[in-house]
Structures are given as C-alpha cells and as structure tokens.
Computed example of a mutant assay.
Amino acid sequence: MKTPALLLTTSVLFSASAATAAPEVVVSIKPIHSLVAAIMEGVGEPKLIVEGAASPHTFTMKPSNARAVESADMVFWMGPDMEAFLKKPLEALASDATVVELDDAEGLTKLPFREGGAFEAHDHGHEGHEHEGAEQGEHDHAEEAGEEHHHEHVTFDTHLWLDPMNAKAMAVAIEQALAKADPENAEAYAANLEALNTRIDSLDKETAETVAPVKDKPFVVFHDAYQYFEQHYGVRVVGSITVSPEVVPGAERVQEIHQKVQELEATCVFAEPQFEPKLIQVVTEGTDARSGTLDPEGATLTEGPDLYFDLMRSIATNLKACLSGA
C-alpha cells in the first residue's frame, strides 16, 4: 500500500508528466487564444501571436513570432480572411504542425460580408447593401480599391466569436483537435470544455440582459465588425465609418456618414482603440450623437482564459453606457 507521501509524489510526477506531454500550441489572435487557453487550463499555456493592442488587420510578423510558429506542434487561427499576415508564414514555417482553421468549425453561423458600411442593413437587409454599394461609387477611388482588394475573396464576416454560440462551436473544434493530438490529456480537455460551455451560457444570458434596455437605439461603429453581436442580441447598428479598418476613409465617405448620423439620429458613434479617434470627432461634430469605444478583438484586455468574457462584457457595458447616456 502506498503511503500518503508516496501518493503525493506520484501525483506531482504525473502532473509534471502531463504538463510536459502537452503540445506546443500557438494561437493567432486574442479572442480565440482565450478559448484555447480555457480548454488547455491545467495542462499547458498556448502562445499568442498578435499581442497587446496590435490588430490582425495591420499586423506584421516579428522574428519571435516566426520562431514560435516554426516550433509549434499546433497552430490555431481563424483563417486567411481574418489573419492574412499569417498565411505565408504558416506555409513556410509550420509544415510539421497541425494547423486548425477555426472558421471551418462545424456548427458555425456565418453571416455574409457587408459592403459599403451597411447603413440600415439591420432593417432593410440586402436592399440596404445595394444602396450603399451605389453610393460607394462616388467615393475616393483609392479607398474603394483598397477595400475591394482586401475583401475580394471574403464571402463572410470573420468576427465569428462575437456570437457566443459560435464561440461554443469553435471551442468544440479546439477540444477535439487537442484531444486528438494529445490523448493523454483528453479527459482534462473535455472537462475544461464542459466548464467553458457553462460559463459561455451564463455570459450569454448576462449580455442579453445588459443590452436589453438600449436595443432599439441606433448607433454607428468604426468598422463593420459587430454583425454577429448585432444579430444575436438584436441591437441596432445603422452603419460603419469604414469597411476595412486598414483603409482610411476618404473625405466624401466621412461627409456622407456625418449626414447619415444626423438623418438617422444615431445615438452614439463608436471608435476602436487601435484606430484613429479623430474621425469620430469629425463624424459627430454638430450632431447630438455621443461617442464611445468598442473593442471587438480585445486590444486593451489582458490575454488569457478570461479575456473572451471580459471582451463580451466590455462591448455590452460600453454600448449600454453610451446609448443610455450614462
């Protein structure tokens, strides 16, 4: 019979062995890094590529990122439509790694990419898209060409995690991939997935309750990243300043949005932490619209298993605060 001390020693050795056996995992962006970290909790810690306030829309790989990808056993990313910067490095450096593209996960709700800022798309569907597309022809050619080039192959909105049901679908794909690569820790991954699903269900209910009082108030966002949040919670996004955040909107586009903010009596116009806030001042000048900040990718948040929850709560509370005038 093992003594208590021997049992403790055996347990410690087993835990150390399990941790050592965990694969080297690299994740592209904060929201999905948070989901991977939650499922790996107690087993290992995934590395993050797009750190701090950097945006995947404008990110450039550093040597340390390249080394991490090259030494990885597994890489999780949304896919080339979100992290275009990662496509060639994965082909060149991750030939021995298991690469998991999460925008291919089963059970995802995918919404079509909206051209031209999508004003009034919430109420008018494709009719609003066509109207905006026609107006867009009047704008600066450089802006139009830049947006068209960036999105020429994009058929759906890639900010999938902003629907919590999509987050759950991606979490299943993450757990399955990890369990296949690391069967010794499969039970831990499965238990963590169950706990994560419970937390997401609770978060979903909390978020719905937070935004319920301001659901009907119209607002404008910096770029069209919130479709999934909008559809899932029924909030009223009436337009975006730019389609592609890496493309600065031209003067005509800014003037058009300024007029739309007045015509639609938008309650708030939201900036994002990574991009130029002066545009928000120009768009809201002379109107009754307030300004706020939304962070769809967690730029200002601390990475880790709690980030996804902090991100969704931040969007909900910032929406409520600005739209209610609090």
Rank of each mutant, 00 (worst) to 15 (best):
T300Q: 12
G42H: 08
H124F: 12
K88Q: 13
R253D: 02
T198M: 12
E83V: 04
V36T: 09
E303D: 14
A195M: 01
E246S: 11
D216Y: 11
V100A: 05
E175H: 06
H149M: 08
D288I: 03
E143P: 03
D96Q: 15
Y226D: 10
S202G: 12
E143Y: 15
D216T: 10
A326P: 06
V211A: 00
L13Q: 09
E175W: 01
P273V: 10
T242I: 03
P63N: 05
G304A: 06
F119D: 03
M78S: 00
E194Q: 07
Q262D: 05
L196Q: 07
G250F: 15
I49C: 02
H153G: 01
Q176C: 02
I257L: 15
F309R: 13
G137W: 00
V261T: 12
T293E: 14
F113Q: 04
H57T: 05
H126T: 14
T20G: 04
V243D: 13
H258T: 14
T267S: 10
V25P: 02
Q136T: 07
L307K: 08
T267K: 15
A94L: 08
N197I: 13
A22E: 04
E24L: 03
E184L: 07
L307N: 06
L323P: 02
P183L: 15
G107S: 04
P4C: 11
D216K: 15
A97G: 12
A21T: 05
M82C: 07
V100E: 03
V12C: 08
E101R: 10
E246P: 10
A186C: 05
E144M: 13
G304C: 08
H223A: 01
R313M: 05
P112D: 13
T98Y: 02
Q281E: 15
C322M: 11
D310K: 15
H258L: 11
P249W: 14
T9P: 00
S15Y: 05
F309N: 02
P218G: 11
E263D: 15
M1E: 05
G286N: 00
L35M: 11
A16T: 15
F270I: 03
R199S: 13
I315E: 00
V211Q: 02
E152C: 06
D123S: 14
I49W: 05
H159F: 03
D73H: 14
I315K: 02
F219P: 04
P23F: 03
T109K: 13
H141M: 03
N197D: 14
G325Y: 14
Y189S: 09
R199N: 11
L311N: 01
H153T: 14
G304E: 07
G125Y: 09
K320R: 15
M40G: 05
H153F: 05
N65C: 06
S95M: 00
H122L: 09
E303L: 01
D310T: 10
D140F: 14
E106A: 15
M61I: 14
K87Q: 08
D163C: 05
E120F: 12
A188Y: 00
E115C: 09
E209G: 11
A179M: 10
H141F: 07
V214R: 06
F14R: 08
H151A: 00
T3C: 04
G42S: 09
V221I: 10
Q281F: 06
V238Y: 09
P213W: 02
T210A: 06
H232G: 00
K2C: 03
D224A: 10
